Simulated assay, not measured.
Amino acid sequence: MELTTFWFGLIGLLWVGYLVLEGFDFGVGMLMPFLARNETERRVVINTIGPVWDGNEVWLLVAGGATFAAFPEWYASLFSGFYLALLLILVALILRGVAFEYRGKIDSETWRQRWDLAIIVGSFLPALLWGVAFANIVRGVPLDADHQFTGTLLTLLNPYALLGGLTTLLLFALHGALFLGLKTRGPIQAEAVSVAFKLAVPAVGVAAAWALWTQLAYGAGWTWLAVLVAAGALIGAAVAAFQRREGLGFALTSLALAAAVVLIFGSLFPDVLPSTTDPAFSLNTTNASSTHYTLVVMTWVAVLLTPFVLLYQSWTYWVFRRRIGTEDIPPTAGLPRLIQAPAER
């Protein structure tokens, strides 16, 4: 196997890890206002992802770093063409991360509500924009002979890409609801599994429409398998939610997200960023890659270090595997407000 092909596949695998793990983080954040009615329940919801959300984002850093090192032309064209969308994702992720750390620092309902809004928005925007970005990568963007993006933001907001964004939004919400059902107990668990079943119907419909559009317009013959696996997994997740088998449902939504990445990368190969201006201007695994020596060094680094990352993250999930409920939440411990509004004095 060519090293360029190996790294293309490995980058796809890193995106599987990111979308499966960070996907339920986004889902939990988006669903918080619907599943948590008071501060104690909000803390339960947040604590389900509190120990792992930052570790899940490592997959994004590694996927981005691997793309930069293995396919620098691809990385450069993506960041020049998708600059505003990626900036919005970055700002949303920063706000969400700060909100997790800051919302409990001051014992003030107004303070917590503002940071909760940051968590919700910081989960909603990436969930939507990642789908828009990946759909545009599959569809292709206007590139000139120098592989420079010649479109605008409106170029990226085409019907196919917007459908892709709605697909990831619904899939992450469903994924997050099943994760909450898996990690909580009591009323929150019951409500989360109920919401998962309600989300499953629109998620299956929208995802099916996007997957069929992708397969018919851009897919290869063998990627029909990915479409069928994703469809079967999502239908199975809906049945599992109805039967209140949240563990099975979560495994099936994870499989569906993995199949979606296979569909995306399988539809692309051997291109990494097609050009809608002229197919000759497209970036592929050959003209976008680093030198052979660079890829060899990267391969050895990946072989030696990746097992340690996997072991550490697996250990983290094992340590925090227990379900939690409202009875596990201690009293609020934030600092009192030292500065009051004039009306409160």
Score class of each variant (00 low, 15 high):
residue 22 E to W: 12
residue 250 F to T: 02
residue 44 V to E: 03
residue 1 M to D: 08
residue 344 E to I: 06
residue 218 Y to L: 11
residue 134 F to A: 01
residue 16 V to W: 07
residue 255 L to H: 02
residue 32 M to L: 15
residue 132 V to W: 01
residue 136 N to H: 02
residue 140 G to R: 08
residue 86 L to M: 08
residue 302 A to P: 02
residue 10 L to Q: 08
residue 81 G to H: 04
residue 93 L to S: 00
residue 150 T to G: 03
residue 274 P to C: 02
residue 189 Q to K: 11
residue 40 T to W: 06
residue 265 F to W: 14
residue 298 M to V: 00
residue 336 P to Y: 01
residue 241 A to V: 08
residue 257 L to D: 01
residue 132 V to H: 02
residue 231 A to F: 15
residue 334 G to D: 09
residue 181 G to N: 12
residue 78 L to V: 11
residue 6 F to L: 13
residue 48 T to F: 01
residue 4 T to E: 14
residue 204 V to N: 05
residue 179 F to Q: 10
residue 118 A to N: 13
residue 51 P to F: 00
residue 150 T to Y: 07
residue 130 W to E: 03
residue 303 V to G: 01
residue 13 L to G: 04
residue 90 L to I: 04
residue 230 A to V: 08
residue 21 L to H: 07
residue 151 G to S: 00
residue 228 L to N: 07
residue 296 V to E: 13
residue 259 A to L: 13
residue 189 Q to D: 10
residue 266 G to N: 07
residue 125 L to G: 06
residue 2 E to N: 15
residue 282 S to N: 04
residue 167 T to Q: 10
residue 161 A to I: 06
residue 345 R to K: 15
residue 214 T to A: 09
residue 146 D to V: 13
residue 205 G to C: 12
residue 252 L to F: 10
residue 216 L to N: 15
residue 91 V to Q: 12
residue 231 A to P: 07
residue 162 L to G: 00
residue 281 F to T: 02
residue 47 N to V: 11
residue 344 E to C: 10
residue 257 L to K: 03
residue 229 V to F: 08
residue 66 A to W: 04
residue 159 P to N: 11
residue 117 L to F: 02
residue 90 L to V: 03
residue 89 I to H: 03
residue 83 Y to I: 04
residue 325 G to D: 11
residue 117 L to E: 00
residue 132 V to R: 01
residue 297 V to M: 09
residue 338 L to Y: 13
residue 285 T to V: 14
residue 315 W to R: 00
residue 256 A to C: 10
residue 210 W to R: 12
residue 47 N to A: 11
residue 39 E to Y: 02
residue 252 L to W: 09
residue 113 Q to V: 07
residue 213 W to C: 14
residue 278 D to E: 03
residue 260 A to R: 01
residue 196 A to E: 13
residue 264 I to F: 15
residue 254 S to E: 14
residue 156 L to I: 05
residue 333 A to T: 08
residue 306 T to I: 13
residue 302 A to G: 06
residue 190 A to P: 00
residue 131 G to N: 13
residue 158 N to A: 09
residue 82 F to A: 05
residue 258 A to S: 05
residue 27 G to E: 08
residue 169 L to R: 01
residue 200 A to M: 05
residue 174 L to R: 11
residue 4 T to L: 10
residue 6 F to M: 10
residue 266 G to P: 09
residue 343 A to T: 09
residue 197 F to A: 15
residue 150 T to K: 10
residue 48 T to S: 02
residue 325 G to V: 06
residue 96 R to N: 06
residue 324 I to H: 14
residue 334 G to N: 07
residue 285 T to M: 07
residue 259 A to N: 12
residue 310 L to S: 00
residue 160 Y to I: 04
residue 186 G to E: 11
residue 282 S to K: 05
residue 285 T to C: 06
residue 225 L to K: 04
residue 22 E to D: 15
residue 113 Q to R: 15
residue 133 A to G: 09
residue 155 T to R: 11
residue 128 L to E: 03
residue 270 P to E: 09
residue 123 S to R: 05
residue 330 P to E: 15
residue 55 G to M: 02
residue 304 L to M: 04
residue 1 M to G: 09
residue 135 A to Q: 01
residue 284 N to K: 05
residue 79 F to I: 08
residue 25 D to L: 06
residue 101 E to N: 14
residue 36 A to I: 12
residue 222 W to E: 14
residue 95 L to R: 12
residue 144 D to R: 07
residue 235 I to C: 13
residue 8 F to C: 12
residue 224 W to K: 14
residue 248 L to S: 10
residue 164 G to A: 12
residue 54 D to I: 14
residue 113 Q to A: 14
